[in-house]
Each structure stands twice: as C-alpha cells, then as structure tokens.
Design a binder for these strands. Structure first.
Ligand SMILES: [Mn+2]
Ligand SMILES: [Mn+2]
Ligand SMILES: [Zn+2]
Ligand SMILES: [Zn+2]
Lengths: 159, 159
DNA sequence: AACGCTAATGATAATCATTATCATTAAAAT
DNA sequence: ATTTTAATGATAATGATTATCATTAGCGTT
C-alpha cells in the first residue's frame, strides 16, 4: 500500500523534475503558469482537451490565457512528458506519459470511451516490420475503432 | 502478364460497380461528377489530398466544384471504397481501398513519404486484444512515425 | 535591491481545412 | 414531357489552432 503511494509520488515528482530540467537545458523559463499546467496534467483525468484543461485551471487561476495553455501543452509534448491524441477532426486530447506506461487505444465510436491496451508482441512486430524497411521508429499510433462492451450489449451506451 | 492486366482491370471495374450498387441501394444518384471522381481515384497516385484530386479533375472538368469533390470523397469513404488518412493537422489524404489491400503506414517525418506495410500477425493480435475487452472492431489505424532509409542514410532526404 | 534583457503571457486576430448554406441544375421516376 | 428532389457549385460559416504584439515577469548581472 504505502509502496504504491510512494512510487506514484516519486513518479509525479520525477515528471516535474524532468520538466524543469528540460526548461533549463533549453534556456526556457520556469513560470507560475507552467507549474500549474503540469500539476493539473498530473492530477487530472486522462484524455482531456486543451479547453477542458483550461477550464479546470481557470477555477483557481482566473487570469491564465487559453493560448498559454495550448502553447505549454505543445511544449510538454515536445519534452516527452505528455502524449497527444488526435482522432479525426476532434479536438486534440492530452494524457500524461510516464516512462513505463505506453499504451494504445480502443476507441468506441458510439460513446467515445477510450480503453487502454498494450501488447508487447505488437510492439515487437512493429519494430521488426520497420527494421525490414531500414526505417528508424520514433513513435507510433495504434487506434482501434469499434463498439465497446457496454454499447454492444443491449443497445445501451452507458458506461 | 496479361493475367495481371486483366485482374487489375477487373478490380477497377469491380470498384465502379460496387459504387454504383452503393448509390442505387441508397437512392442516391449517379452523376457525371461522381463518375469522374472515382475514375480519377482509380488511376491516380495514392495518398492524395482533396485539393490535389480537385486540381487534377479541373484539367478536364473546369466546372467541377471543390465542395463536390470533398462531399464525394466522404461518400466514397462511407461506401468503403477509399481510405482516409489523417495525420496530425495535415490535410486529409485518400487512397483506393481494394478488397485485399489493407495496409498500415510507416511515415517519414523528414520527407513525408508513406511506406506501406502489413503484418498478418499484428492484425491477429489486435483482434485478440479487442476480444479480451469484448470490443467489436470496425477498423483500425496504425501509423509508425520515424525516419526512412533515404533520410537516415547520409543526412540526405531524397527518395 | 535595482537593472536590463528577453522569454512568456494574455487578448485578440489570422489561418485554413472542412462543413453548411442556398439558389440552380439535372438525375430519374412517372 | 413533367415532376420531384438529390446533387452541384459558389460562397459563407465554422472552429480548432497558430500568429501577433503590447505588456509582464523570470533571471542573470551589477
Ligand atoms: Mn490513454
Ligand atoms: Mn497507403
Ligand atoms: Zn461505448
Ligand atoms: Zn524520408
């Protein structure tokens, strides 16, 4: 129990630390806005849009600007701290990306829910496939669209 | 040789035929514009944007409208005849999708080239993963981003 | 602690792919 | 031929994202 809590806390602190490192290594500045944005990302639910994050931040920081949120989400993405999820023409969503947590998504076309999945074998086969083409893999995106068990069941679509 | 040509021709005719079937089954009309759009899609290079297709069509059909091209690309997608490829905020690209030709893409972040790949094993593992979640798969999208062999070689990025 | 440099912010405008609107045209059924 | 209405083409609207720019505030130096 305690172990879990400690490891999560350590993880979160590691994220902030990495971000600060990233900033200073590039001559970027640490700002109040950047601090509250990472903190919100860390404690928030996953798969939020820029304006969902913006609205949450507004509650405590009424003066923060939407552009600032967007800019810094991009920055966090560049820093490898968060992932961007772009589905069709929907708003971009963001989620924290801690070292060991890569995963892909099953996306329900009825209710929009994201189910996180992972297959070491698929990851391996991707690398193998790329290797055959002498292609250097930087990242990938696997999205499986369909109907989740709740929406599939009895016509209902409540999760 | 001849066999190949015949099979390709048959395939192309099958596409037009399927489209006509799709139209009539839904009470939609066959139009000159729809005809030239499918024909262009069939003979064109792959991974074209709506306005690339529009420009090509304009050469022979100076009166065709951009909205008509977009609308019918969406229609062809609904009919299962073409695939949509949406990368980040780039313009949507389209490619013909014949029965047996599903594939995924390696996408070079330097030169933008698309390399088509396919792994039966990955396809199987995806289905297996979904089955575990009692998720009904409708379609999927696997994009692997990285650096192609030409761009990786000697700093060059000519294909 | 004050100064200077300039990155960062916040308000707003611009961008641009896509979608909607609507008067007109033309499939296709009668 | 007439009628019905889907489809078209020109254009406007939309909306997420990005750019602009005057102002603010990190942060290293003095
Ligand atoms: Mn996720
Ligand atoms: Mn392709
Ligand atoms: Zn669902
Ligand atoms: Zn390349």
């Amino acid at each position: 129990m305690i172990m879990i809590i400690i490891s999560v806390m350590a993880d979160k602190e590691a994220i902030s630390k990495n971000f600060k490192k990233y900033l200073s290594s590039r001559g970027l500045r640490r700002t109040l806005q950047r601090d509250v944005i990472v903190r919100e990302i860390i404690k928030s639910a996953k798969h939020l849009t820029a304006d969902e994050i913006f609205e949450r931040l507004r509650k405590k920081n009424p003066n923060i600007g939407y552009a600032t949120v967007c800019r810094n989400l991009k920055l966090l993405y560049s820093a490898g701290i968060i992932d961007e999820i772009k589905i069709g023409n929907q708003k971009t969503r963001y989620e924290l990306k801690s070292e060991d947590s890569h995963h892909d998504h099953l996306i329900c076309v009825k209710c929009g829910k994201f189910i996180e999945v992972f297959s070491e074998k698929i990851e391996e086969l991707q690398k193998e496939m790329a290797r055959k083409e002498r292609f250097i893999v930087l990242r990938h995106k696997l999205e499986i669209y369909g109907i989740c068990k709740y929406c599939g069941e009895k016509g209902g679509e409540r999760s």
